[in-house]
Design a binder for these strands. Sequence first.
RNA 1: UGCCCGAUGGUGUAAUUGGCAACACGCUUGAUUUUGAUUCAAGAAAGUCCAGGUUCGAGCCCUGGUCGGGCAACCA
Length: 553
Amino acid sequence: MTEEKSLNFLEEIVENDLKAGRYTSITTRFPPEPNGYLHLGHAKSICLNFGLALKYGGKTNLRFDDTNPVTEETEYVDNIKNDVAWLGFSWANELYASDYFPQLYEFALKLIRKGLAYVDDSTSEEIAASKGTPTSPGKDSPYRNRSVEENLTLFEQMKAGKFKDGERVLRAKVDMAHTNMHMRDPILYRIKHAHHHRTGDTWCIYPMYDFAHGQSDSIEQVTHSICTLEFVPHRELYNWFIEKLEIFPSRQYEFARLNMTHTLMSKRKLLQLVNEGHVSGWDDPRMPTLSGVRRRGYTPESIRDFCDRVGVAKRDNLIDISLLEFCVREHLNKVSLRRMVVFDPLKIVLINYPEGKSEMLRSENTPGEEGVTYREMPFSRELYIEKDDFMENPPKKYFRLAPGQMVRLKSAYIIKCEEVVKGSDGTILEVRCSYIPESKSGSDTSGIQVKGTLHWVSANHAVPAEVRIYDRLFTVEDLGTLEGDFRDHLNPQSLVIKRVYAEPELGKAAPDERFQFLRMGYYCLDPDSKPDKLIFNQTVTLRDMWAKEAKKG
RNA sequence: UGCCCGAUGGUGUAAUUGGCAACACGCUUGAUUUUGAUUCAAGAAAGUCCAGGUUCGAGCCCUGGUCGGGCAACCA
């Protein structure tokens, strides 16, 4: 049982650092920008950052990378905090890059004094043009050799609001011919006369990512700064600032971001889906956002398990969404309450069951568990079963209801199909069956063995409900390598709404309860639900071997 | 044309650091089952991108290729 799981490359780095005595404890951070909602890709990062600190006895800060006032909002901050907490992690400190604006300003001054930064009056276009290309060197800015004093004065004036947006920037003086584009005199500060969600109008100059992130890590004494692969080229700059500023040497390590089949993991594109109304919002249950999967009924446990199984490495990956589904099923199978709901009703009339009679039958809430509990459901002469559970001319391996055949009604009786009643157009109106009184569940003395067991609901006792059934958001597997517009591949069937018949017990459903609708799938109450209008979301279907068998023909 | 990453069953990760390529999902088959679910058992599936080299021995080391990804926002 004590089988050792091998370490991933990040754990290996941490263990080596600890072993070498480089640190006595580690600090990580999760650094979201508050300009959108968190998605499954962030969940991977959260699990990695918090998981590392948990495993090696360190701490993790939640730090908002809020250096761009025009895209960032408090609403996002609140939702991000909620999502991280929901996932099950608690941060050591709630911090903001904007808390460090005064310190970052001092850092900039230090670079200027060292002759390592200068104010550039060039336009954005001029700077882009002189940057060169990956294969050809850039050209020095004409303002590159200003004196320290002039730079100090100009930068002071930038801060004081003497200039308009875009008029000047502060740049690091590195090397315009560097093979790494990020080292070609990167911009440190830009002018934005914009209201910041936390600092208000205190500042009109804001640091760029490169001049804020690493320094924030350093200020917080983050030992292992973990980020995704696209930041690999930034690492050289990250280290350059640490060296020139002579500050705590945080180290950056990169891993491959999570990609999943049939969905997107890009904040920008997800925002587009929201803004264009392709989904109902960030928390639409079809969205890969944490708020979306939460509303869909996914549990934090299942998502953490998923992140664990997905692993971490540096090669590009495309995770099959069926792994995520496996993880929820595995958890929900243990914790969900069993209920019966008929989606597509076919009326069954029990010809030998007294009219007007009804009885309460008990059925287990959670089978397989030791402290098994039960709920009761009404049984009567007229029932609904699933249309799919009856066939007039069944194929060979069909063991549901058919003329002359017997099936068990779950937690109730065995019934036998006696007669099919059709309308003038040939459609089946109802199926008349006999029931076997001695076959009552729990006290069956009939000795009859049947192959099939069906879920059912008493026609006169069932409560109507709405069920929202979800399918993959996109019809194509790999959205990443797709040329053209990703919206062309939206799945028109990603949401199907059905009117269904639920057993009465579901009228008491609570928002935090998870249900398994027997033989149908896992469901939970949607926030839109009201006592007089029940609405359930399908989290995921059950595994369905019969569907596979039937497809074979 | 430059620089930087990466390459192991269908997918994702391993391989005690040079010693018979393993685990999970998926797939197939069987058993159990009052959910065609769950559970259990068995099985198919890669010889590690290619070519050389070092070595008794290479998925791991070296050389050269090939392929995939990233890098030129006053975004993060």
